[in-house]
Amino acid sequence: MRLRAFAPEDLPSLYDVCVRTADAGGDARQLYPDQDLMPTIFLAPYVALDPSLAFVVDDGSRAVGYIIGTADTGEFVRRCRQEWLPTVAGRYPAPAAIDTPSDEMLALLHTPERMIVPELAAYPAHLHIDLLPAYQRKGLGRELMTAFLAALAGRGAPAVHLGMVTANVAARAFYDRLGFHVIDVPDAGVLTYLGRSTDS
């Protein structure tokens, strides 16, 4: 088991990790007929736009977990709108109505500006972290987070935030152990926002 920088050949494995953990930490393959939809929103733009902030856990044969993110959410949103969305909008057009879970996700894809939340301004970086269930509770998440926070600090980002589904109590316990605290964001819906400094 080793932690290393992301490599382009990791992408199929990371897509698999993403969709298998996308339902509040559980397997989302049954929710979304297109298995690439969730990774297209929550994984691929990060490794395309800022691969130097992507780290993976490798079990010797494939990547089984990752951490991704950005040091500057505002700049990331701008680049998503201008650079990423045009590359995927043909396959994933904006939904005419919100009738299915896939429609809900497509609406998120087409509104990257949703990531700009005034209450998070003091936490300009943000992240996503996912590990396959068999590799959780082994200290690997902490190793990923340590590497990511150090990289953010090296980029001059003072603090980082994340949005997690409130129902994912196991993830919340993990973040609490790593020093994250709740950021009060009114009308956050199903999400809880957490943040911490990038200091080790």
Results as ranks from 00 to 15, higher is better:
R2W: 02
R4N: 02
L11C: 11
L14Q: 05
L14M: 08
C18A: 13
R20C: 12
A24N: 09
A24Q: 03
G26H: 08
G26W: 03
D27R: 01
Q30G: 15
Y32D: 14
P33Q: 06
Q35T: 15
L37E: 15
L37G: 12
T40F: 04
I41K: 06
L43W: 07
L43M: 12
L43C: 11
V47I: 08
V47R: 08
D50I: 09
P51Y: 14
S52H: 14
F55T: 03
V56P: 01
D58Y: 00
D58H: 01
D59P: 02
G60W: 03
G60V: 14
S61T: 12
R62A: 04
V64I: 04
Y66L: 00
Y66I: 00
T70C: 04
D72S: 11
T73P: 02
G74N: 13
E75K: 13
F76T: 14
F76H: 13
F76M: 08
C80D: 13
E83G: 07
L85I: 03
L85F: 11
P86D: 15
P86I: 02
V88P: 09
V88W: 06
V88E: 07
V88H: 12
A89T: 15
G90W: 10
R91M: 06
R91K: 09
R91E: 11
Y92A: 09
P93K: 07
A94F: 09
P95N: 09
P95R: 03
A97P: 11
A97G: 09
A97T: 15
T100C: 07
S102T: 14
D103A: 13
L108M: 10
L109F: 08
L109W: 10
P112W: 06
E113S: 15
E113F: 14
I116S: 13
P118A: 15
L120W: 08
A122L: 07
Y123S: 06
P124S: 11
A125T: 06
H128W: 07
H128S: 06
D130H: 05
D130Q: 03
D130L: 02
L131K: 00
P133M: 02
A134I: 03
K138C: 00
L140N: 00
R142C: 01
L144N: 03
A147F: 04
F148Y: 14
L152A: 09
G154W: 06
R155H: 03
V160H: 15
L162M: 07
L162W: 04
G163W: 06
V165K: 06
A167D: 10
V169Y: 09
A170F: 00
R172V: 02
R172A: 08
A173S: 08
Y175C: 00
R177Y: 02
R177I: 00
L178P: 06
G179Q: 07
F180M: 01
F180L: 01
V182L: 08
D184H: 08
D184R: 04
D184Y: 09
P186K: 13
D187K: 05
A188W: 06
G189F: 15
S197G: 15
